[in-house]
């Protein structure tokens, strides 16, 4: 298996038009989403369990 070296990775990444601000915003959003996911397991749809009769 051939490992991609850093020079190749940087070459391939050059076509991506990404700046630092976008990276920061995307990471913030990603972290916000994952912490929201951790807080909410099973919180949606709990009401259906009451619907018994």
């Amino acid at each position: 298996m051939t490992m991609t070296n850093w020079a190749d990775l940087f070459d391939r990444a050059e076509s991506a038009d990404v700046d630092l601000e976008t990276i920061r915003e995307t990471l913030e959003s990603q972290r916000h989403d994952s912490s929201a996911d951790e807080r909410e397991p099973g919180s949606d749809g709990d009401e259906e369990a009451i619907d018994d009769d």
Partner: peptide, 15 residues
């Protein structure tokens, strides 16, 4: 991956 594509993200991770 969210800023580019899964291939580049995967190769970067492997490195």
């Amino acid at each position: 991956a969210s800023l580019t594509d899964a291939d580049l993200a995967g190769d970067h991770r492997a490195r």
